Structures are given as C-alpha cells and as structure tokens.
Simulated assay, not measured.
Amino acid sequence: MGKVLVLNQDYSALSVCTVPKAFLLVYMNKAEMLAESRRQYLRTVNDQYPMPVVIRLHRYIHIPYRGVVMTRQNLFKRDGNRCQYCGTHDNLTLDHVIPKSRGGKTTWDNLATACKRCNSRKGDHTPEEMDMPLRQRPFRPSFLMFIRDFSGLAADEWLPYLGVKERSY
C-alpha cells in the first residue's frame, strides 16, 4: 500500500501517513478525503471503499516548526545522489565545504555530497582554494520542499497541494 499526504485544516502539508491510518481518520470523521486513487480500492468482504491519496484534517494542528532531519540519506537526496564537484554517482561520501579544522560546522549549509576522489583531492581546503566550484550551494530544505522535490514519495495527486502545477520529467 502507498502513502497518503496529510494536510492541515488550512491545506498546508502536515505529514505523510499510511493508507490504513488515513482511511481510519476519514472513517472516524476526523479528516476529509480530497483525492483518491483512480486505480486502487480498499476492499472488505461486502464493500469497496476509495483509497485515499490526499486527506485534510477537520481540526487545525499547531506544529511549532517542522524541519527536515539532517541525515546522510537526506543530504544525498538533497544533492540528487551526485558529487557536487564532478557530478558522478559513484563512491559518494559527505564533504564539509569549510573544513572542520577551519571551524566549519556539521550543518545543512556546510555539507555537500562528494565522491571519495573529489573529497580526497579537496582535502583540508575550501572549494575556492582548490578551484573546485560546487554545482549548487548547500542549503537547508524546507519540509514542503523535501516532500515535493527530494523524498520520491509525491504522487501526481499530491502536486497541486504541494505548490506544483504538473510533474516535470
């Protein structure tokens, strides 16, 4: 079974949950179904129900700040599983753009995906010192941006709720 996009009462993206959890929220009248699967249904012995793809909660849930957890996998996803120096997909690791020995922090804004060869070549220098420009500057993705662009979970039915008109291939 797939995943379901959960929207807050104000239609902002709140989370992603399982189909059974989403169905239960709709069935218990805690949420409304905004989009359903065109191909799949939930079946019981006697009935057939539409499978939710996007639901909206009836009550507003206040979440102080929703950020993306900085993990190795999330950093690789942000950078498209490519070395940010040469563009290869092979032997990837993480590089501190400003080296730790020079006061560089382990943050979204200072970590970039790099292949072992480029990471070793750059060593204890900055990209500018080694004439190794980054393909993109490291950044902290927002929760919405991460679901939409990097998670690989977004179904076509989610896109209007994530600020995308249509999927670009």
Rank of each mutant, 00 (worst) to 15 (best):
M1R: 09
K3V: 03
V4I: 06
V6E: 05
Q9Y: 06
Q9P: 01
D10S: 09
S12N: 11
A13M: 02
A13C: 01
L14D: 07
L14I: 03
S15L: 03
V16S: 05
V19E: 15
P20Q: 09
K21D: 08
K21T: 09
K21G: 00
K21W: 01
A22G: 04
L24E: 06
L25C: 00
L25H: 00
Y27L: 14
N29K: 13
N29T: 10
E32V: 14
A35C: 12
E36N: 12
S37I: 06
S37F: 06
R38K: 15
Q40F: 13
Y41I: 10
L42F: 06
R43Q: 09
R43A: 07
D47I: 02
P50R: 12
M51H: 03
P52I: 02
V53W: 02
V54K: 10
I55R: 10
R56N: 04
I61K: 11
H62Y: 12
I63D: 01
P64T: 13
Y65F: 10
V68N: 03
V69N: 09
M70V: 10
M70Q: 14
T71A: 04
T71K: 07
T71C: 04
R72V: 13
F76L: 15
R82Y: 01
C83R: 09
Q84C: 09
Y85Q: 11
Y85L: 14
C86G: 12
H89N: 14
H89P: 01
D90M: 08
N91A: 15
N91E: 14
N91C: 12
L92E: 05
T93W: 02
L94V: 15
D95G: 03
P99V: 13
S101C: 09
S101E: 13
R102I: 01
G103K: 03
G103T: 04
G103C: 03
G103R: 05
G103H: 02
K105Y: 08
T106D: 15
W108K: 01
W108L: 05
W108N: 08
W108M: 04
D109G: 11
D109C: 13
N110Q: 06
A114L: 02
C115W: 04
K116V: 15
N119S: 11
R121P: 00
R121K: 15
G123D: 08
D124P: 00
T126E: 05
P127A: 12
E128C: 11
E128P: 04
E128N: 11
E129R: 10
M130W: 06
M130D: 00
D131F: 02
P133I: 09
L134M: 11
Q136H: 15
Q136Y: 06
R137T: 12
F139N: 06
P141L: 02
P141D: 03
S142W: 04
L144R: 07
M145R: 15
I147Q: 11
D149T: 09
D149W: 05
S151V: 10
S151T: 07
G152T: 03
L153N: 06
L153A: 12
A154C: 02
A155F: 05
W158A: 01
L159Y: 01
L159W: 00
P160H: 07
Y161D: 13
L162R: 10
G163A: 02
E166M: 08
E166G: 00
E166T: 12
Y169N: 04
Y169M: 03
